[in-house]
Amino acid sequence: MPLKLEAKNLNFFYGNEQVLFNNNLPVEEKKITAVIGPSGCGKSTFLRVCNRIFELYRNQRAEGELLLDGVNVLLPEVDVLELRRNVGMIFQKPTPFPMSVFDNVAYPLKLHFKLSRRETFDRVEQALRGASLWDEVKDKLKTSGLALSGGQQQRLCIARAIAAEPEVLLMDEPTSALDPLATSKIEELMVELKKRFTIMVVTHNMQQAARISDATAFFYKGVIVEHGTTTKIFTNPANRKTEEYITGRFG
């Protein structure tokens, strides 16, 4: 299987405090990779390196390599806007823009492509269908994205993220703010989406990781203690810490 993403000796610092230590992680194409570990171990930080969103803050710094299709995207000469078009992100709390449902999804399209109105509309519909939201919002495309329910807002954000046809989707606890029904909808959606995208998802829910992911990486205090196929990690972990964590003995 080809690698889509690969971290090599990745270190991360908040100011002087190092929180990721020599992370090495291969991420296979069109698979779901679950990132698990106790709170504060650096899962979100790892994801935030992948699209360089951490650069918004001046004192945050990454060292090492993060290869996307073999190219180190941490190098300053890599166009960060293009990188972010390629690597979409979904946050824990839904983050719809303060505009209509339609505009939320059309925004990234206008940003990155020159499309006619017709084409834009088609691609918005496509993205909303892709996020299993079309049927619920097709009659209220003009209403504010903020007026949707939490689960709908999260799927709207997924639609927005996939509209620009990225290759990788980063999801940071995408269902932790949602009820079980909305959660299972998003889980189904992720399994559907992995046909087209490489997905990395942070989750605190072991059942969720076991249900939907193909590979799992276990983080502990900024170190990737163990990674491998989900089956292997969940049935026969090599490391004692991993076993303790997935059986719920700490964390």
């Binding site: 699209n51 969103i53 918004l56 806007l81 293009e82 972010r84 078009r85 979409g88 992100m89 946050f91 709390k93 983050t95 823009f97 925004y107 990234p108 940003l111 990155h112 954000c157 927005r160 993220a161 620009a164």
Partner: peptide, 13 residues
């Protein structure tokens, strides 16, 4: 919220 700024940057704005 900062999350909104991040979301906006995250789509390549």
């Amino acid at each position: 919220p900062y999350a909104l700024r991040e979301a906006s940057l995250a789509i390549g704005m």
